[in-house]
Computed example of a mutant assay.
Amino acid sequence: MLSTPLLLIGIILMGMITLILRAFPTIVPQRLLRQRWLLALNFALPMAVMTILIMASLNLFTEQFTMTRFSAEIIALVFVLLSYIRWRNVFISLAVGIGSLNGLLILLQ
């Protein structure tokens, strides 16, 4: 178990990293943001995040595998896909995925 000072240090570090990442586009000159590798990263990152979320959400190879949970996961992934196609927003799709999976698990059990 982590002690309170370690938890506070971790929270402060995560907050600082988040602030730096949020401020990065406004601090860095525009000519650097137009570099080919940053444009490619900006294009590929949303799909990479969605792929990671999909792979992490499936519990196919765990001891707790049930067909009910698998069905709920597949339906939730369809909702995530549809929301991403509709709004092109990773954060909305993330919320839709978490909400629909939890809602479906409650309904199906």
Results as ranks from 00 to 15, higher is better:
1 M>Q: 12
1 M>K: 07
2 L>R: 05
4 T>P: 07
4 T>L: 15
7 L>C: 07
8 L>G: 05
8 L>K: 13
9 I>K: 15
9 I>A: 15
9 I>W: 15
11 I>N: 13
12 I>R: 09
12 I>A: 12
12 I>E: 10
13 L>E: 08
13 L>P: 00
14 M>A: 15
15 G>H: 01
15 G>R: 05
15 G>P: 00
16 M>F: 15
18 T>N: 14
18 T>I: 14
19 L>T: 14
19 L>K: 08
19 L>E: 13
21 L>W: 10
21 L>D: 11
21 L>V: 06
21 L>M: 13
22 R>V: 11
22 R>T: 08
23 A>R: 07
24 F>Q: 14
25 P>G: 08
25 P>F: 07
27 I>E: 09
28 V>H: 11
29 P>L: 03
30 Q>L: 14
32 L>N: 11
34 R>W: 10
34 R>H: 14
36 R>C: 04
37 W>M: 07
38 L>N: 10
38 L>W: 10
39 L>T: 06
39 L>H: 04
39 L>S: 06
40 A>F: 12
40 A>H: 14
42 N>P: 12
43 F>N: 15
43 F>T: 15
44 A>K: 12
44 A>Y: 13
44 A>W: 13
44 A>E: 10
45 L>N: 11
46 P>I: 01
46 P>D: 04
47 M>E: 07
47 M>A: 08
48 A>N: 09
48 A>P: 00
49 V>P: 00
50 M>Y: 01
52 I>P: 00
53 L>K: 01
53 L>Q: 03
53 L>T: 04
53 L>G: 02
55 M>E: 04
55 M>G: 05
56 A>F: 09
57 S>M: 09
58 L>Q: 02
58 L>R: 03
61 F>M: 09
64 Q>S: 12
65 F>Y: 15
66 T>S: 15
67 M>Q: 07
68 T>E: 05
70 F>L: 14
70 F>S: 13
73 E>M: 06
74 I>E: 06
75 I>V: 12
76 A>Q: 01
76 A>R: 01
77 L>F: 07
78 V>D: 02
79 F>N: 01
79 F>C: 00
81 L>G: 07
82 L>Q: 06
82 L>F: 06
83 S>T: 03
84 Y>G: 03
86 R>S: 08
88 R>F: 05
88 R>G: 06
88 R>M: 05
89 N>R: 00
90 V>H: 00
90 V>T: 05
91 F>I: 13
95 A>C: 10
96 V>R: 00
97 G>Y: 01
98 I>Q: 02
99 G>F: 07
101 L>W: 12
102 N>H: 09
102 N>W: 08
103 G>R: 07
105 L>R: 05
107 L>S: 11
